[in-house]
Each structure stands twice: as structure tokens, then as C-alpha cells.
Design a protein around this nucleic acid. Structure first.
Lengths: 213, 213
DNA sequence: ACCTGAACACCGTTCAAGT
DNA sequence: ACCTGAACACCGTTCAAGT
């Protein structure tokens, strides 16, 4: 029935499509098969199981990141670019973000960003231990930022999409939360991301400068 | 059959238990009911559905955080304490962490930490907008750190629990990753967390100082 | 008010049968 | 080699029946 033959890439693409259309919860082998116009069991000729398929989804999304590294640029600009490239995931595949972030990949697609980041950090003079530490800090920040952007993170960015919610916050128990309702209600994800990123870059730049002493 | 009567708290406790014992994937209404020695449908007398139950799990875990705030302490110490309190989640309920982090709560349990953090930041002189920005940055960092600690984060902290994995990394494609195999393989979560936290605190302290000019 | 079994519409995956 | 339907052991949830 399918005009093109079934293949792993086609299955992964259908899975990504389905997640973006109906959310990560909606995904199932049966739904994907239905979308492709084949029987469920046909999928198992190309993918061993659902977990592996989700890994492939994560890998595919991750490998779609456009890393445009300019080795001649200032190192802070290079770090900026790499961090922003990651944030693209949340833009291009918002509902796949959780899948990407919650899967442990050891494939090249997952490791290339690591390699690049380490190379950049080492080239400015950080030793191995520092480079790894700094990379991990950036990753933690980026992952946390993506989850907020994608609307998955909790509580801590409350009071959204409706002023009614604000009214329900008890002003005597939560005076600050209440008085900052406007600020908490709005969130310019790009500005927020940039703010934290600049603070981090500034902090590690300071660390680098303090090195010479 | 149950010696104690069924109740929402007992159901939530059983759910947390099950998640910690067998992982978040293993959770189901039927398994929880079995653990409690009741029929599945009995649960629905106390909890409207599975999603609400998971929200309650998140809220319960979150409200178990021990916030010991000393208003007389240095503000940096207060921030440190609040951040560390969050990290306790990953220690006390490692396998529930993903659940906590992936649910949007608007309950008091979820908002109290926000309220405290905002109060602390405002008391040192940050205005509302700055306080919210800084809080969000900390939350992003903490959430990302917890996910790494709990082993959920991807790729980016690769090469774990086995030296064999390292051997498989292609040294010509990934020279840095390969040469830093030892550093990437080990991860002292507490040290890692503290490193990033100190950098963040230092960065915002600098921002505060630069304010007087 | 609380408990429950049967039933419904879903899952992922194994297996044996087809081509 | 690839596709597939039937079958199995699971899901969450509705409903009607019990106490």
C-alpha cells in the first residue's frame, strides 16, 4: 500500500511527525504504523522495539542541529553559537524536546556537540578537567532552559496564559509571587536564555582572566 | 483486606514507592492497586485519574524538601541553601525526579520555593524583573543538573560505567572526547553542582556590585 | 460513601504463517 | 528479506452493580 518502501528513516520521520502533531504521549507503534499505512508488525522489520525507535528520534532531531562553527571567531562567540544551536531544537521540534533530553545517546550525533564544545574550551586554555566542568554546567543550563521553553518545567514559572490564575494566588502567603505576577506571567524565552548564557560566559571569562595571576 | 483504609495520601505514597523501586516507566494504576491490595477501581474513589496522581506525586516529593532559611545569613548563603535543598530531591527520590520536573504545578508546594527565592533576591536589592530573571536562570541550572545526576540527560555526559565504552569512541573523529575519557567518565555530582552554583552566585554578585556605579 | 468486576478501547511484542 | 494477522499480557477508564 505505501508508495515508498518502508524504511527506518521513514519510520523515524513518521514518529517525529506524530509527536509534533499530537504530543509525546500520543506516540505508539500502532499509531505510527497506521500513519504509514502498514501493519504494526511491519515496523519491527526495521526497528527492534519502541525504545530504540525513540532513541532514533532523539538522534535524528539532534543531528538536525545546525552547528556553524567559525574557528577564527572570538571564543565567546563560538560558545554563544553552540549554545544557541542547541536551543534551536526547542524551536524546530518543541514537542520532541523532552524525548531528546531524556534519552541517553552514545551515538556520533550525540557526541559531536560535546567534541566541538570541548575543543573550543581547550583552545582558549582551559585544562581538561575545567573544560568538562564548564561543558557540564552549560549543558545543565541549556537543558533546563529548553524544558522551561517547551512548557514542561514545573511550578517555578507559574501563572501562565491567564490572568485568572494570578487572582488565585494568596497574597498573604505569597506576597512576592503575587506582586511579581506580571513579570512571572510573561516569559520572553530568547531574552531569558540569552541573559543566563551571557552571565555564564562572563563568569567563565572571569575565571579565565583570573588564571594569569 | 487493607488494614488501613484507602486514602489519597496512602495511594500517593504507594506510587512514590513503586517508582523508586521499579522506575517511572513501571508505574500503572493496576500495579499501585495491587501493591495496596485493592481493586484498580478503588483508586478512582480518591484520585480522578493517573495524571492527577502523578501531579500529587510531584507535589508530595516537592513539599518534602527541607528549606531551612536563615534570614540573618549572608544572601549568598541563603541562595546556596535553597539551591541545595532542591538538589536533595535527586538524592531522596532519584527515580521520581523526572516526574517532579516534568509536571506543571500551581499548588502551594510548588510555589513556596519560588516565593522564598524571590523574597531573598528582592531583599538584596534586585528589582522585580531582575529577581525573576535570576530565579529562572537558577531553576534552569538546577533542573538540568538534577536530570544529569539522575542519569536522564543524554549523550552529553557520555561514556559511563564502563571503560569499554571509551574504547569504542573513534579517536580521529572525536579526539577531545577520547583524550578526556577519564574526566568525562567520572562525575562527582555534588562537586559538579557546587561548581556551577558558585559560578552563578559569583556572576549575580558581580551584577549586584556593578549596580552602585 | 466507598468498593468492585466486567467491559471497552487501547498498548508493545512474540510467534507462526505467508510472499 | 520483508510483510502480516492472531494472540498474549498488559494498559487507563466508564459503567453498573454491590455494600
Amino acid at each position: 500500500m505505501p508508495v515508498e518502501p518502508l524504511s527506518r528513516p521513514r519510520i523515524v520521520a513518521a514518529a517525529i511527525d506524530l509527536i509534533e502533531r499530537e504530543g509525546a504521549d500520543a506516540i505508539s507503534m500502532r499509531r505510527i504504523a497506521a500513519d504509514l499505512g502498514v501493519g504494526v508488525m511491519s515496523l519491527y522489520n526495521h526497528v527492534p522495539n519502541k525504545a530504540t525507535l525513540l532513541d532514533a528520534v532523539a538522534e535524528t532531531v539532534l543531528s538536525g542541529i545546525e552547528f556553524t562553527d567559525d574557528p577564527d571567531a572570538d571564543w565567546t562567540d563560538r560558545v554563544r553559537m553552540q549554545a544557541r544551536a542547541f536551543r534551536q531544537i526547542a524551536h524546530h521540534y518543541p514537542r520532541c524536546t523532552m524525548v531528546v533530553v531524556s534519552r541517553q545517546l552514545q551515538s556520533p550525533a550525540g557526541m559531536l556537540p560535546v567534541e566541538r564544545a570541548l575543543a573550543t574550551l581547550r583552545s582558549v586554555g582551559f585544562d581538561g578537567e575545567e573544560a568538562v566542568r564548564i561543558l557540564r554546567m552549560f549543558i545543565a543550563y541549556i537543558v533546563g532552559s529548553l524544558l522551561r521553553e517547551v512548557g514542561v518545567t514545573p511550578t517555578f514559572a507559574p501563572v501562565h496564559h491567564s490572568q485568572v490564575d494570578i487572582e488565585k494566588v494568596d497574597p498573604v502567603l505569597f506576597p512576592e509571587t503575587r506582586s511579581l505576577a506580571v513579570e512571572l506571567g510573561a516569559c520572553d524565552h530568547e531574552a531569558e536564555f540569552e541573559f543566563g548564557m551571557e552571565l555564564l560566559i562572563q563568569a567563565i571569562a572571569g575565571r579565565l582572566a583570573g588564571r594569569g595571576r
